[in-house]
Write a protein that binds this DNA or RNA. Structure first.
Lengths: 189, 189
DNA sequence: ATCCTTTCTTAGGAGGTCTAGGCAAATGCT
DNA sequence: AGCATTTGCCTAGACCTCCTAAGAAAGGAT
C-alpha cells in the first residue's frame, strides 16, 4: 500500500511515451495504470477521463513541437528557415509518431490548451518573417504551410516510415516549390 | 426471429451514415447492430471485426470522393480544374465529415482497398495534366496538393465548420497561390 | 421433403470506462 | 507531538464494447 508517486507530470509523460510505443489511439487509462502498478480507478484522482488524458498528451506534444520549431528558426531566415522548420516538423513526427498523432487531437476551445496551440502558429509566423508577406497573405501562408506539412508527414508515416531516398528527394523538391511560392506570392487576384 | 435483411452493402452505407452523424471513431459494431435491430454478435456474419468494418467505410468514402473529383474535372483544365477539384474535396469533407475522416483511415496494403486509394491519386494526376509538369515534379505536386487539401480541410473541420467569409476568402487566395506555384514549378534546384 | 448454407440467436469471457465509498499515508495546523 | 485534513490508492461494481462458440431458424437448392 505504498504510494506509487503518480503525478500529473509523470503521468502525462508516461502516456506520451506509451503513445509513441503503441499508438496514440491505443493510449488507455488501464494500460497507463498498469505501467505505474496501480489500478485503473486510481488514475481518476489525476485525470477526469480518457479525453482529459489525451488532451494532456496533445498539449505536451504541441509544446515540444513549438520548442523544436523555435530552436530550428533561431538565427535563420528565408529558405534556410523554411527548410529548418520543415525538417524539425518532419523529424519530430518520425521520432515521436504517437506524440505527433496527439498534436492532431481535437482539443476543445477552452482550457489552457489554446496557449500551446497558438505558440505553434506563432512559430510559423516567425518563419514567414523572412518572406515579407503582408496580411492577409501571411495568414493564408500559415494555413498553407501547416496543411502541407501535416499532409505530407501523415502520408509519410502512414506509408510505414519508408525514409527512402526517393521520398527524401521529393520532400526537398517540395520545399523548393514552397520557397518559390512564398517569394512569388500572388499579391492580388 | 424474422431476418433483418442485413447485407454488406446496406451495412457499409449505414456505417458511413452513422460516421457522419456521430463521428467515424464512434462507429461501433454494437451501435450499428442497434440500428438494424439485431444483436452485435449477428454483425460478425457480415464483417470480420471492427477494423474490417472501418475499412469498408473508408473504401466507400474514397470511391465517392474519387467520383466527385472526376465529375469536377470533366471538361476543365488549368486553374478551372484546380478550383473545381479543390472545392469538390472541401465540399465532400463538409457534407460528410465522418466519411471524410474515414478516408484518412490507414488501410493495410493488401485487400482490394488499394484500388479505391489509387483512383483517388489518379484524379489528382488528371488535374495536373493542364499544368504540363514532367516527372518527378508531377509526383511531388500530387503530394503537395494532397497535403495541402487535407491539412486545410482538417484544420477547417476541426475549427467547427465556421464557413465564414474570411475562411472562404483565405481558401480562394490559397488556391491562387497554388495555381501560381504549379505554373512556376521549379525545374531544377 | 430434405439437406445446406446463411443469418440470427443466446451465453459468456476479456477488457475498457468510470463512480461510490473507504482506508491509509502524507501533509498542514496548532 | 498530536490532531485534522487532504490526497493517493484501494475494492466493488455497473455498464459498455469486442469477439467466439454453439445452436436454432429461414430460405434456397435438389
Amino acid at each position: 500500500m505504498a504510494r506509487a508517486g503518480v503525478t500529473v507530470e509523470r503521468l502525462t509523460r508516461a502516456a506520451a511515451d506509451l503513445a509513441d510505443e503503441i499508438g496514440f489511439e491505443n493510449v488507455t487509462v488501464s494500460a497507463l495504470a498498469r505501467g505505474f502498478g496501480v489500478t485503473d480507478a486510481s488514475m481518476y484522482s489525476h485525470i477526469r477521463n480518457v479525453r482529459d488524458l489525451r488532451t494532456k498528451v496533445a498539449i505536451l506534444a504541441l509544446t515540444e513541437l513549438a520548442e523544436r520549431a523555435a530552436a530550428a528558426l533561431a538565427g535563420r531566415s528565408g529558405k534556410d528557415a523554411l527548410v529548418a522548420f520543415a525538417n524539425a516538423y518532419r523529424d519530430y513526427a518520425r521520432e515521436h509518431p504517437g506524440r505527433y498523432a496527439a498534436t492532431r487531437f481535437e482539443l476543445d476551445p477552452d482550457s489552457a490548451s489554446a496557449e500551446a496551440a497558438t505558440r505553434h502558429s506563432e512559430m510559423t509566423r516567425a518563419l514567414l518573417r523572412g518572406y515579407d508577406l503582408p496580411e492577409p497573405a501571411q495568414t493564408d501562408a500559415v494555413r498553407l504551410l501547416h496543411g502541407f506539412f501535416h499532409g505530407y508527414v501523415s502520408l509519410e508515416t502512414a506509408g510505414g516510415f519508408s525514409h527512402s531516398q526517393a521520398v527524401d528527394a521529393s520532400w526537398a523538391r517540395n520545399l523548393d516549390a514552397l520557397d518559390v511560392l512564398l517569394r512569388n506570392w500572388p499579391s492580388q487576384m
